[in-house]
Structure formats: C-alpha cells, structure tokens
Design a protein around this nucleic acid. Structure first.
Lengths: 264, 264
DNA sequence: TCATTGTTGTTATGCGCCTACTAACAGCCG
DNA sequence: CGGCTGTTAGTAGGCGCATAACAACAATGA
C-alpha cells in the first residue's frame, strides 16, 4: 500500500501524525492501526494491514492494546473486526489519562519541595518560554523598591506577568515598562510608567525580555528556536542573576543602554 | 541514600511519582533528578546523586535534558548547579506540549476519517468509560421511535448523555430512563419518563448501563476494574449490537427482565 | 470422501534502539 | 599526590519493529 518505500523519504502527513501519537504514549503500530481504523470506519486485521504499513500478524495485538486503552472496540468473531472510538472521545480519554498522571507526579513533588535560600555569585540559564516566565514571576515577587520590565513582543508579557507588575506597583514599587511594541505598552496603565525603547538598543530583533529588580536582580532573554525537542513556541533562552555582584554590574550596563536611571 | 535496596521492595511514593513522570514522557533519570532538585531547591550533580538513586555521572545529561525541556535551569560554573522550574510552570509546560501533540495527531485523523456504513450480525465489545459513553451517544443519534436508558450510578449518566436523551425526547422519540438511584432519576425532567429499576434485575451491583433504541439497537455494560494499564476510573466494559437479529433478541430478553413493553 | 488451497489468529525469533548502570578518564586545584 | 568535576566508553536488558512459521479452520475441486 505504500507508494514510497525509500528508507528516508520525506515524512508524510501520516508519519507526522504517528509521531505525535507516539509522543502521547502510543506505539507506532498502535498509532497506525488507530488511524487506519478511522480511515476504514470498521475493519478486519487484514483490511487494516492493507491500508497501512503494519504486518497483519501485528494488527491483532496492536488493536487489542487500543481496546485496552479504550480507543477501539472489538468484535469477537471470525474474522475479528475492530472499530475506532470517536475522535473527540479518544482525545478526551488521552487527556484524562494525562491529567491523572500529571496529578500523581506533581502532587508528590509538591510535598517534598524546598525553596532555595539565596545565594552566590551566580548566572543561571533557563530555556523555554514557560520556564522564563516562571523565573520572571519569582524574581518579581522579591521587588522592594523598583522594577523595570521590557518585552519586545506581546507574547513575552503574558497576563500573569502583567498582573505581577501591577501588584508590585500597587505595593509602592516604582515600576517601569519599556517596549518598542505599542501593543505591549498599552496593556499597562495607571501606576506603571510606560516608555518606548530607545532605538540605540533595539536593533537586534532577537532580543526578548529584560527585567531589573531593585539593584541586584537582573534577567535577560533572547528569542530564536534553539531546536530543542520540538517546542515550536518555546524558543526563548534567558540568563538571570540575583543578589550578586554580577547582577549589579549587568544592571549598570543595561541601564546605560536603556537610558534609565535606577538610583533615587 | 536508599534505605531499601532489595530488588522488589514495595514501591515508594517516589517510585510511583517517577512512574507517573515516565508516562508523561520523561526518562526515569530525568524524573528522579527533577524530584531531587525540588527537594534541594538548588543543587550540584553530586548533591543530586546523593539525594536520589542516579549515578553522579548521569546527572549531568539528565539535568541538561530537563533544561532543554524547560523544566530546569543551569548555571555554567564549577561545580555546575541546577535548579528546577516551579511546579505550576512545569505542569503547564507539559500540558502545552500534550495539547500540541494532541492537535497534531487528531487533526490528521479527522481529515481521513470515514463513518462506518452499517452492518451485519455483530456484537461489539468496548472497554473504558469514555469509550462506552461515546458509543452510547452514537447509538442515541439513530433513535427514531423510542429509547430506554438505564444507569446504576450517576457517573454513568454524564451530562452529554443527559443532553442527548433530552434532544431525542424533544424530537418526538418516546424516551424512558430507569435507575435504582434517585440521584440519576432526578436529573431528567418533562418529556422523559422516569422509573425505578424493578428489584428483580437489580441484584448484581456490577451492572452498569443499558440502552435500547427502537427495536434493533442494544447496549449493555458492566463495571469492575478489568485491570487494564492503570485506568483507575475506566473499569467499564460494554457490549452492543445494532440492526441485527442478535440485537433484537437481546432487546426482547431485556424488556422482559425490566418489565417494559417496547411495542406500540 | 479426501486432498488442496487459502485464511485466520497465535507464536517464535532476530534485530536495533534506548535506557539503566558501571567504569574509566583527563583536567583542575589544594 | 589525592580529591573532585565533567565527559565518555562500554555493557546489559527491555521494548518495539519486522519476518517467519505454525495450527486450526473453511472452501474448493477431483
């Protein structure tokens, strides 16, 4: 059934779908049989093996495994027949399973977790949009006197960050937001100072976020796919430092470039 | 650090958490390092290997892999230091990844899917709560003249099923719901007939759902963990048949047991 | 009636990859 | 020298992929 048996041909849409299913926890055979069953509506092992690249003898176990996962139905007859569960039901079955495992895993982590007591002359690296946002929020929580936050793109100033910045401003922290992008600037109001980024430092379109907190906390991020696994949207890498001489030095440098004065 | 090195000791809470992380796509080492980092707050490879059962030499690659996934941060120094991302941020990172893969997988299935044109003298088996519900909904959609639905437990009559039953009733389908459980019965109103289950057939507390549609569609389910993978809540297995003599016979038998008359 | 042919469902086997685990190593510093 | 760090090689076992062989059964034709 495959018009293309070359070992390294361009991956088809089906190949990509199979890979996605594999990352959801299915085996390659299970994924192909599931897809084939949806193609057929109903089918025997033979029919399945004719519309996809799974040997007939392996269809039985793969389909049985799908049935165990609640993703397919079986008819005990000769020949046996299989039919897939509906797409939405299958999606929700997998999602339920994901949520269950997620709870099991993170509940335990929650119980044993310790918060780090700071700290030394450190520069930390963090990869991934969500991870960077997480770090921004934790650093913002320490703010006592002033905060400067910059984001080139709106996606880099998500709702949680906006909220945290507003909370800081409400607590009497002198809060400034800089961005070249108007759509970022207009998300902040009232107690927050908003400013355009000076053209001098805005040249590189790979810059991401900047965060200065008080006099000794700094975070800088850049965007651009680092070709992780396959995190299309997470191409952000940040460095940060807190309560260190290194942080202080970085802050001075950054302030000069931005034309901001942190003293006062 | 392990007080228990017997090969097959009872799994600890941490073991169970590690297994959950593995089902979310992490390796065992990655999971243990992630947990250890949360235990420590911050840590070097040595410290991690002392707190969990991962050889020091393997901590480096495991932590680096966590950093690639956006689940940990790295400090390039000697000794290197690692720190975990916050629990909520980690959970949301994994969930985002899950949703992305889920879309990739099911969008393709949606494009190639065919609906089965019914059908023969078949009895189908379906395992898992969600899969059974899916089948109930598809069978309900065929209703022309009458529907009888029964569920022993409220969980077996989820909102979608209630909605579908009401829709059928509104379409002029004579609709009856039977259940021993008052909490099931009181979910249905107006155009739907509600009845208690006669004691004669209610004996077995493993019965699940029953569905009769017109004169030739029937579904029967039973509950009880079939010890699938680990689907704690999905211990339901159903058989069903539609437009077959087998279905007709089953319907007659069921009606007698329930004291219902389907003619008219 | 018997032999032949084909189908079905099960099972065995070899291969390759990834993970777990151990071990060895060069570089650095006190 | 001795201890620590970070990297790398090497082994073993498990799982998934792939192919083949098999018994049981049904259909066919002489």
């Amino acid at each position: 059934m495959s018009e293309d048996d070359r070992p390294d041909a361009t991956p088809t849409d089906e190949d990509r779908a199979v890979e996605a299913f594999e990352r959801l926890g299915l085996t390659g055979y299970e994924a192909r049989v599931f897809i084939a069953l949806h193609r057929l509506g109903v089918g025997t092992a033979r029919e399945v093996s004719e519309v996809t690249d799974v040997p007939r003898s392996q269809v039985y176990s793969a389909a049985e495994s799908l049935a165990d996962r609640g993703l397919a139905g079986v008819q005990q007859s000769s020949p046996m027949q299989y039919r897939p569960i509906g797409v939405e039901a299958a999606r929700s079955t997998l999602r339920t399973r994901f949520d269950r495992e997620s709870t099991r895993a993170f509940d335990y982590v929650d119980r044993v977790r310790e918060t780090a007591d700071e700290q030394r002359e450190d520069i930390w690296t963090v990869r991934g949009r969500a991870a960077v946002t997480d770090r921004v929020l934790e650093l913002l929580a320490e703010a006592q006197r002033r905060v400067l936050f910059g984001a080139r793109l709106p996606e880099l100033a998500p709702e949680e960050v906006v909220t945290a910045l507003e909370a800081a401003a409400d607590d009497g922290v002198r809060t400034t937001v800089v961005s070249r992008s108007p759509s970022v600037r207009e998300r902040f109001g009232e107690p927050i100072d908003v400013a355009d980024t000076p053209p001098t430092v805005d040249g590189d379109d790979r810059s991401g976020r900047i965060l200065l907190v008080d006099d000794d906390v700094v975070l800088l991020s850049v965007t651009g796919a680092v070709d992780d696994d396959d995190d299309g949207d997470a191409g952000e890498t940040a460095i940060w430092s807190a309560h260190s001489n290194m942080a202080t030095v970085l802050i001075r440098l950054t302030e000069v470039g931005l034309g901001v004065d942190g003293t006062g």
